[in-house]
């Protein structure tokens, strides 16, 4: 469990993280979303004690990170896979982590096998690794202490499609065993597939948080109609806003049952009606992160999603 309470961090006049509070629960994958420079990485560095917050507290497993006696056994951290001494071999980097944590030698080879780095690859220097191999090595370093909490910043970067699927399975399995996963990414599809909970940050502030199913349910329905203007008007008469999509599509901010009833009552034939889950996260993300400076348009935000 990761708990962040009212954490802020300022650099001179610039506020990188502004009164951020959220929790990442055991047994769940928490997706941490935001545009570049929104404060994701700063927040993660604050959690693991690499950056001091200006105010607020962050705890992992009930303690401040810096007070953990042997943090590697509690929290697996991967903030930047490229932040390694490029002159060391992959095996050596794992060995150093193993020694700091006081683990048996065998763990190194187990971890190499887990992340599918061959003995030959493990003997090469990290300078010669691709980004995907560095990510695998970083995952191995994070998992070697058998922690109950994982904090990963953009772990899917550089992984090939098979690698991304592998990572997804690994994190799902980790959470299903009761582990806590905090995962940042700007790959929305990845987050949508893997995350149970979402925290969306923009300009240093949390703009939405909650269970993915709750946040996306309110994202509405996608429909196509013979005459979408008629449907849009009928929806509006019932208090449901909608946005045109493509040539004949409409994204309505209500669930499919309600939209179907309204269209039926209006006698407007639909060509297609489905929950807008696929586009929902992207839509939600773009809406939320574009709106932090113009709160007047917040009426189109998903209900109950605004923190």
């Amino acid at each position: 469990m990761i708990t962040i309470e009212s954490v802020s961090r300022t650099y001179g006049d610039f506020t990188a993280v502004d009164d951020v509070s959220f929790t990442a629960q055991p047994g769940r994958v928490t997706g941490f979303l935001g545009p570049n420079g929104a404060g994701k990485s700063t927040t993660m560095r604050i959690i693991v004690g690499l950056t001091q917050p200006t105010s607020g507290t962050a705890t992992v497993a009930g303690r401040r990170y810096v007070d953990l006696p042997n943090p590697g056994l509690v929290v697996g951290v991967l903030l930047d896979a490229s932040a390694q001494h490029t002159g060391r071999t992959g095996r050596e980097i794992l060995t150093i982590a193993r020694r700091f944590m006081g683990l048996p030698r065998s763990r190194v080879e187990e971890m190499l096998a887990l992340v599918s780095l061959t003995p030959q690859e493990a003997s090469r220097r990290v300078r010669d690794y691709s980004l995907g191999m560095r990510q695998r090595l970083g995952i191995a370093t994070a998992l070697i202490g058998e922690p109950g909490v994982l904090i990963l910043d953009e772990p899917a970067n550089g992984l090939d499609p098979a690698g991304i699927r592998w990572m997804r399975g690994l994190l799902r399995d980790f959470a299903d065993r009761g582990g806590t996963v905090l995962l940042s990414s700007h790959l929305l599809h990845e987050i949508e597939v893997i995350a149970d909970d979402l925290v969306v940050i923009d300009n240093g502030r949390i703009v939405a948080q909650g269970a993915k199913s709750d946040l996306l349910r309110s994202a509405g329905s996608m429909l196509r109609a013979l005459d979408r203007d008629v449907v849009a008007q009928a929806l509006l008469d019932s208090g449901v806003t909608s946005t045109p999509v493509g040539t004949d599509g409409l994204l309505a901010h209500a669930d499919t049952a309600k939209v179907g009833k309204i269209a039926f009552a209006a006698g407007a034939p639909l060509l297609e009606l489905r929950p807008a889950d696929g586009t929902g996260l992207e839509e939600m993300f773009l809406e939320l992160t574009a709106q932090t400076q113009r709160d007047t348009t917040s009426d189109s935000q998903p209900e109950g999603a605004v923190a």
Binding site: M1, P147, F174, G178
Partner: peptide, 19 residues
């Protein structure tokens, strides 16, 4: 014992000895 993925507990941190 080879436990490829974490056992996924939040751990009883207090039993860890300092490095």
């Amino acid at each position: 014992t080879p436990a490829p993925v974490a056992r996924g507990t939040t751990g009883s941190v207090t039993t860890h000895r300092a490095i």
